[in-house]
Computed example of a mutant assay.
Amino acid sequence: MKFRCERDAFLKALRITSRASGTKGGLQLILSGVRMALTGDELILTATDRELTITMSLIVAGDTDGEAVVTARLISDVVGSLDPGAVNVKVEDGKICIDSDRSNFTLQTMDSKNFPEITVIDSNPVVLETEKFMEALRKVIKASSADESRAVLNGVLLSPETQGLRMVTTDSYRLALCDLPGLELLNSDQNVLIPARSLQEVIRLFDNDQHISLRFTGGEASFDIGTVRVITQLIEGDFPSYKGLIPTHQPNRLVINRENLINAIRRVRLMAQDSTPIRLDMSSAGLELSAITQDVGEAREQLDATFEGEDLTVAFNPEYLLDGAEVTQGEEIVLKTIDSLKPAVIQTLDSEEFLYLLMPIRIN
């Protein structure tokens, strides 16, 4: 294999695909590599850890077709160290040679025969309403769990609703739900659970002027974004039954300026150390945020707000509360509560298409 390309384009492709490479040694060492396959002037780079695969196509000045697998992190570091300009790449005798100006590197390659076969998903693609889909995805993904012991909580549930598509995530302490009316993506009896990690890559790769095509087949899904394809294994298992957790009636209602609330949470949480919650005291006088950590200090802040209901004090994890305020859109948002122990809901003031449900923390 032999080709010539620009350093910046090559480095971008390496960094994008390398995010799917694995880190295990031993028999899984091949998963730490990126496969480069050249046909004519098209170079296809692929990395996978078997659960997530990222491929990217790059146009180069091809000389000799072929393929090679080289450690993803190492080649990315090497190419990144080069000065901008043309890079010459040649593979022979089990080694890859990279030349640029006066710099020359020779790296060992791995046997490409051991690299996993990548599934070609050839089902008909669905071209997404990209802006709405990505906006909904950004809203819900923070509520997914990073605890790998409960795999079904590591994903984003996509399910069909009467009016369109619904996205749901939960880590058992909070839940985010977003409806997309009019987006018919799934069959009426089809639910899919896509790993949040894979969707984070889709978010990272997305550019506002791009279309995204989505395909499903068997236990996999793929997203095409420009010249990049993200392929992910779907999560097997039953997503928790969540509909019964969403309160149907919450008599207490706090309406507040979103930016003011976000800034106040950021300030007060400085004193919410060692798992200390933030307390919200709600009354007709408005809202007071407070956090007290023994032997550290305390913070209090008064905010103007409109409150309807019985005076109430409720406490939340400060990071979870901040996430909820940040992903809920609108100049003003509403916090709905029942009492200090039952789930609270954060929503946009004039829309019910998105909700962020948050469990309170018991306080003395």
Rank of each mutant, 00 (worst) to 15 (best):
L175D: 01
L43Q: 08
N364P: 15
L289F: 08
Q108A: 12
D179T: 05
E51V: 03
G286D: 03
A72G: 15
Q294D: 15
R229N: 13
I54R: 03
S283T: 05
G182Y: 06
R50N: 14
P160G: 12
A305N: 04
S112E: 08
K139C: 10
D99S: 14
L335F: 13
L289M: 01
F307K: 01
G237V: 07
V230G: 00
L234E: 06
M271S: 13
E117Q: 11
V296S: 10
L175Q: 11
P84Q: 11
K90M: 13
R197I: 02
I346F: 14
L38P: 04
A272W: 02
T46A: 09
V168M: 08
N104P: 02
K342H: 11
C97K: 11
G164E: 06
N191E: 14
S222N: 10
L175A: 05
G244T: 14
T306E: 15
L322R: 15
I59Y: 06
V140P: 03
D304Y: 00
R362F: 04
T71L: 10
D323C: 00
R174K: 13
G26L: 10
V296L: 15
L205I: 06
Q163E: 14
K342C: 01
A344I: 09
G66N: 08
R50L: 15
T48F: 08
K243L: 10
L180H: 01
L107N: 05
